[in-house]
Amino acid sequence: MDFRFNFAVDENENSEADTHFLLLGSAKHSQESMEKGRKTADAGADCSLRPGVGQHQEEAPRTKHCVKAAKEHLIPEDLNKVLENKVMETISDLYHVNVSVVEMTCSGDADSEGIVSKSVSSHSDLIPGVYEGGLKIWECTFDLMNYFSEAKIEFSNKTVLDLGCGAGLLGIVALKGKAEKVHFQDYNSTVIEEITLPNVVANCINEGSSKEDRKASKPPAKRPKKGEGSPEGLNKCRLFSGEWSEVSQLLLSGNKPFSKYDIILTSETIYNPDYYSALHDTLAQLLDKNGRVYLASKVHYFGVGGGIYLFEKLIEERNVFKSRIVKTIDEGLQRCIMEMAFKDSS
């Protein structure tokens, strides 16, 4: 049963929770992906800038990294406007916008970038420099969420950035873990407005709901009233769209007080080697001197050429961070979780 956050329950018997995954490759290539990644990483320093390098794979065309201006998205006072006509479902006990409905209904001013129509018409989860996959929930997001529990990652009183957030599930987990501040960033403003913000709001106003209610997709017992004030969790949040370096500049040079992040979370953001330099520099600029980055990735991304070993190579070359693989997932396409910290950190 799906429900809409205009608090009318949708009794469509045929509707089911529909979680989307972006899998670039297939399970039978998992071992091959690891071998390709290692060979590519050892091929030389310039390999980190050439997507698609690998045995039996043609070199992909070079992607020009598009600089998209940064923008902060303010949380409106009337939360009902954020949740209006949003069909919700639950994933891992978290409320989440049904993306299929967004794809069918999002147009005009709600999609000023045109990414929904372009993604649907091209049947593509990635349009470099235009749409960077934020409408989908990528597989490694759940790997990282599971790792939080296994490794007992402590978010309490920490400042956290969900970088390349998409649905924002990683940041929402940190928020529920009593983080002091949680910031969300995605390349596309449409993703922030139509996916991330509604997800954050829905989970904040449902903070007191039971696990059984969330599994049953029950709406909040209390409807938020205009002028009532934001739930406590929302006061901890800021949301940004734009290219990584532009968002860094906005934060570091802005009028609002800014402290660097204790924890930066990012999932499947290293699929395209053309973006590695910008990602590395953003992490270096925004991470606290004793902070940690938790990065989840597939070993190799077929068709775009990125992967964990290429990014490790870049880290070694830059000599700013130390990194280690803290978990490897061998189910299907092999995936990894990497922890990063400054070399001189405690």
Rank of each mutant, 00 (worst) to 15 (best):
Q334Y: 15
E132M: 13
I153M: 12
G52N: 00
G242W: 03
S323Q: 03
P273T: 04
I337K: 02
Y131T: 02
S253Q: 14
S230Q: 13
P76W: 07
A296I: 08
K260W: 15
T141H: 04
F155G: 14
F258Q: 10
R324H: 01
V326M: 02
G242R: 02
E13R: 04
K215W: 06
A179W: 09
K152D: 15
P273Y: 06
N12C: 06
L314D: 10
Y261C: 07
D274S: 10
F342C: 02
T105F: 03
N157F: 13
N206E: 08
A70E: 13
G164H: 08
I205T: 11
R38S: 06
G52V: 00
S277Q: 10
N255R: 00
E228V: 02
H96Q: 05
Q57C: 01
L163K: 05
D125H: 09
F155N: 14
K158Y: 13
E339S: 06
S217W: 00
L135G: 07
K71H: 07
E139F: 04
L310N: 07
G114F: 09
E32I: 11
S119F: 08
D213Q: 08
S277P: 00
E207H: 07
A216C: 04
Y95F: 05
C106I: 05
S156T: 15
K226N: 11
S156P: 03
F21P: 00
H123L: 03
S230R: 11
K298M: 14
L74N: 06
K178I: 14
Y275E: 09
E331V: 13
A202G: 06
T19R: 00
T40Q: 06
E139M: 04
V9D: 11
